[in-house]
Design a protein around this nucleic acid. Structure first.
Length: 422
DNA sequence: TCTGGGGTCCTAGGACCC
DNA sequence: TCTGGGGTCCTAGGACCC
């Protein structure tokens, strides 16, 4: 039978900040999103104050102040580095790992010769806590969705671990799981299901497929199967192959100047293209998106334009050229913009696409790919932005987000090393 | 001609997660 | 309680073509 583990880092960004600030161990601590806009990570003390996930900072400013909560701007360089150390540790356990997000890793335990899964889960949890210093919740179950549920039970019902071995245990867990806590049921679906008398996950797995199909699309049906113990989600490398890749950022200030938009778009394309090459793919189109500074009855307004590429590519220069066509078509001198973004679409494996190529064209394209790979290697080794495209023109980069409360890059920059003595 | 069927591409936006 | 972040996937509806 299939068996997956989810290793979920508790309050991850907060845990990373606390690694170098032990004085904050039992204080209310939160981490903000880019541009210091929303709260995206909360210590238990912050959660206890009733501050929800993703809330805009301005809405909770008073309660933050009254409780002397400590706020940090997001420091992704630090979190990314700690995350990589955890992945490395897990790889010592098994190569069958899927890096799901910066703070979540799945492991396929199906084929591993483990006699006692409880003991395994506890040992892994202990290792990450002792060797890296980050507390985790480890859930083990027959599907990825159930492992995710188990990891939340590890927090609420267990001592950091929760293992589902039998079908009785699976059903017992689902009888205690409110539908809104299911991975894939959000604020829209949950009230609708409750209206129809469904409050617990077990009621979903017991429902007839005919009825379920009237409530869910393909994604929802997949989710129910997963809860029933039937794996429907891909695992491993395949799961990391994105069908779309997006990079976007809100500006620190409203932007009107075309050249600043150009430099922002070029920077986003550069990042997205590196991600595209990292999964060894090419794309055949891209969409440029701008968010307008003005609102329509409180709603955000977006405009977008899709550009079809002359041929599939992963070449940053070609992608930037096409993206600027799209930007020029969207741009209005009268416009004021809050945010820009780029989405790469029509993504296919490079090998798949190469099969359709003629021989003589092949060499020339291959040289472009090799050049780009060298750029990626340099930027990986010496830091993002070591080699960059002229259009990114740093002198125009006044669109950068706000980061007013960022902690030092303790682990990735020599100038930011913690000091023991003055 | 405004029409009927079917396919594809684009835009806008919904829904969810962290 | 549904948005002052970022990201992915999905779908409805319109335009356009055959």
């Amino acid at each position: 039978m299939s068996c997956y583990a989810l290793i979920d880092c508790n309050n991850f960004f907060v845990s990373c900040e606390r690694l170098f600030r032990p004085d904050l161990a039992d204080k209310p601590v939160a981490v903000l999103s880019n541009n210091d806009g929303c709260i995206v990570a909360r210590s238990n003390e912050i959660k206890a104050l009733g501050i929800p996930m993703g809330v805009p900072l301005f809405k909770v400013r008073d309660i933050v102040k009254a409780n002397r909560a400590v706020l940090f701007s997001a420091n992704f360089e630090l979190y990314g580095d700690i995350s990589q150390r955890i992945v490395q540790l897990l790889r010592e356990e098994t190569p069958l790992i899927e890096v799901y997000s910066i703070d979540e890793n799945f492991i396929d335990l199906s084929e591993l010769p483990i006699r006692d899964r409880n003991a395994w889960a506890e040992r892994v949890r202990d290792r990450i806590l002792k060797e890296i210093g980050v507390p985790t919740s480890v859930g083990v179950a027959p599907t990825k969705t159930l492992a995710k549920v188990a990891s939340t039970f590890a927090k609420t019902h267990g001592d950091g671990t929760w293992v589902v071995e039998s079908d009785e245990e699976r059903q017992a867990m689902l009888r205690e799981l409110p539908i809104e806590d299911i991975w894939g049921v959000g604020w829209r679906l949950a009230p609708r299901l409750r209206d129809r008398g469904v409050s617990w996950a077990a009621q979903l797995t017991d429902a007839s497929d005919a009825w379920l199909r009237t409530q869910f699309n393909v994604t929802g049906m997949r989710m129910v199967d997963e809860l029933r113990g039937i794996p429907r989600l891909p695992f491993g490398d395949k799961a990391e192959q994105r069908k779309t890749i997006m990079r976007s950022r809100s500006f620190g200030h409203t932007v009107r100047d075309y050249f600043q938009l150009e430099s922002a778009v070029a920077a986003f394309v550069t990042q997205a293209a590196a991600r595209l090459r990292a999964q060894d793919s090419v794309c055949d189109g891209l969409t440029i998106m701008l968010q307008l500074a003005s609102r329509d009855r409180g709603r955000k307004r977006y405009i977008s334009r899709h550009v079809k590429l002359p041929e599939p590519t992963a070449h940053t220069g070609q992608l930037i050229a096409s993206s600027l066509e799209g930007l020029a078509a969207l741009y209005d001198v009268e416009g004021a913009y809050k945010k820009a973004g780029v989405t790469l679409t029509g993504i296919v494996d490079r090998s798949e696409w190469q099969l359709s190529l003629l021989h003589q064209e092949h060499d020339e394209r291959e040289r472009g790919v090799v050049l780009m790979q060298s750029v990626d290697t340099l930027n990986r080794r010496f830091g993002r932005g070591t080699v960059w495209h002229a259009t990114e023109a740093k002198r125009h980069a006044q669109w950068q987000s706000k980061r007013e409360r960022q902690s030092p890059r303790y682990t990735t920059s020599l100038t930011d090393l913690p000091r023991l003595h003055r």
